[in-house]
Structure formats: C-alpha cells, structure tokens
Computed example of a mutant assay.
Amino acid sequence: MYDKYVGYVDDCFMKDAFLQKAMREAFEVFCNIPVCGSPSAELLAGFCDSILKKGGCQLSDEATDESFEKVVKVLAYFNEKDVFAEFCRKKLARRLLFDRSANDDRENSFLTKLKQNCGGQFTAKMEGMITDLTLAKDTQTNFKNFLDSNPNLQPGIDLTVTILTTGHWPSYKSSDLNLPEEMVKCVEVFNEFFDTQKKLRKLSWIYSLGTCNVIAKFEPKTMELVASTYQAALLLLFNYADRLSYSEILNQLNLTNEDLVRLLHSLSCAKYKILIKEPNSKTISPNDDFMFNYKFTDKMKRIEIPLLPVDERTKVIEEVDKDRRYAIDAAIVRIMKSRKILGHQELVMESVEQLQRMFKPDITAIKKRIEDLITREYLERDEENPTIFKYLA
C-alpha cells in the first residue's frame, strides 16, 4: 500500500507537497489503529521476527534488506515506536537465548537500519544484548579452563551459563525454585568461578530461561528429552518417588500454582505424556496425582517438550509505560536545566517536541510527571505565578 500511494504521489502528481502531507496524515491514522486487540507496533515487530528467526520467512539477502527498508519507512508513521522497540527486544532475546536466530549478519543489518532512522538510543539495548552473547562465549571458555585446572570442582553434568547485563535485557521473573541435588552443585561451582572473575558483580539466576537435556529411561527405549529447567527439575523428583501428589510437587519445587499448572500440563496433558495423571483429564487440579510413564515411546530418540506460551503483551505495555515515565522526567529536567525558568505551556510543548520521536506523549502524563518532579524537589513553582516553574540545581 505504501509503495502504491508513493507511486501515485511521486509519478502522477509530481511529488505535490499538499498530497504528500495528505498521504502522511492518512498513514498516521490507520497505522495506529489496533488490529484484533493487538497494537500495530506488535504486529510489525512480529513480521520482523518472522524474517529473522530460523524456520521463518525464507527470503534472499536482497529481499530481506528490501523488507527492512520498508519496515523503517512505515515505522515513521507509528506513534508508539517505543512499543515496537520493546516487542523487538523481547523477540530478539528469545532468538538469541534459544539459538533461534537465522543469521547474525541479518540481525546486525536490521539494527543498523533502525539506528540510522530512529537514533542510537532506539537500538542501544538491543546492541548491548548482541554484545552480551559475544562476551558470554568468552566467559564459557574461561569456565571450561577453570574446571580443567580445578579437577576437584566438577559440576557433575555438562553446564553452559550465559551471563547477561540486567539493563540490556527484558526483565524476567526470578523465582526461588528449589533445585534438585544434581543441579545445586552446578550453581555452586559456577558461582565460585564467577567470584574469581567479577568480584564486584552479583549473579541473579533466571531458571525460567534455562534448558536441560534429560536422559529418560523408558521400558521401550532410552530417550533424550529437551526440557526447560523447571520441567527437568520436576522430572528429577521421580528418581526418588514413584507417585507424587500436586501438593507434594508444589512444596518440593517451591513454585507458584500458575507455574506448576503450566509445567504439569506440558508433561501430562500435552503431546508428550511423560507423566501419567490421575484422574485422567485434560486439566490440572490440586487433587491430582502423578506417576512417571515408563511405557512412553516415540519414533524419535530426541524430543523437545513444549511449554504453553505466556501472553507477554500486558507485561510489554507495563515495561513501556515505566520507561515512558523515566523518559518524560528526563526531558523535563533537561529542558528546565537549560532554561532555568519556564511557563507551564512552554514546558509541556517543548517536552512533547523532544519525546515525539519515540512516542506521542499524553499531556496529562506530562502534567503528572511535572507534579512528581516538584514533589521530589527538582522543580518549584514561582511564588507569585504558579504557572511558572523554576529549576532547582
């Protein structure tokens, strides 16, 4: 549609300024209308993800570059560019952490185009994520050398750890999962290694992002199960018990009910029934009992056990709202630091002008942030004229 109407304006109307303005306004209207409850920014980020991930759109390098060029052109009409950036960051994280990126060069090409059109701040976190993955490979090499030189500190199982910088990556839920004995030793050994490398940095383990390769001995044959850390921790409980109730699993793993229901559903009600559930139904309840399914078999020797996807849209919107508050605060302080004294209307207008490259700020939100900055003593009202603000150094 963009190509079609640009062609009309350029070729049929000789790039007439009035029609260029009309086209821009029209695109701004419909590009910002949600589709089936999803923000257009989310859908555009999903399109980019389909090009960049393994098994996605099979395009040539030339066609991929052309698609990215069109994405950044259409993105110019979006009011919520920060929502697009946050969804892109979430999807990039999944591609990088689960090795689902089709091509490193394409990832870098996409970020370069976004940076050229939206500025360095737009892509700073995503570039930091890619840098983290490169540094993580060096850390893993150092960890292997550490184990080789300390034979008494063996974790017992093969362990790969990816170190991430908190500020670059989306926030993930950190739980107090009770790790099985087999995994506790791994964490202890890596912590000891990390203390020798980065004494002033603190590790926070995000088990929800981990994957494990579990050797499962079924009666028909032995198989390799590719599972999440949570799924693996649950399965290992059956090394020491033939039958476990819902409440027993909940207490031993120290998970929330929501997380445990997802785990048990994936292992007993989904495609691969590694566990047998009593009563045999398609839903999980606190009264259920579970047993290891020794008779399970599959034509494949190695299978990946999927987890039910979690709707992350609400969380992304919350993250964007939080970032917007910081961005509005920073813009107001920046303006007042240079101007020292400014009227309310002028401050609001200058704030909107600074922020609209990333999002279309709500006037009410700006007013709330001004009041908050007054409370925190960044600004003060003029005693004689309350519509004039003064900057407090």
Rank of each mutant, 00 (worst) to 15 (best):
S228M: 02
T229S: 12
Q231G: 10
A232R: 01
A233R: 02
L235I: 14
L235V: 05
L237F: 07
F238L: 08
N239G: 06
Y240R: 12
A241T: 07
D242Y: 08
R243V: 09
L244A: 05
L244T: 04
S245M: 10
I249N: 03
E258C: 10
D259N: 15
D259W: 07
L260I: 11
V261R: 08
R262Q: 10
L263Q: 11
K271H: 14
Y272M: 09
Y272P: 02
Y272C: 04
L275S: 00
I276P: 00
K277F: 03
P279M: 07
P279I: 07
N280Y: 05
S281T: 15
T283V: 12
D289C: 12
F290A: 01
M291P: 00
Y294N: 10
K295E: 15
T297I: 05
T297S: 14
D298V: 08
R302D: 06
R302S: 13
R302C: 13
I303N: 06
E304C: 09
E304G: 05
I305A: 04
I305S: 04
P309R: 08
V310Y: 02
I317W: 01
I317T: 03
I317G: 00
E318P: 02
E319M: 08
Y326D: 13
D329Q: 12
A330Q: 13
A331Q: 01
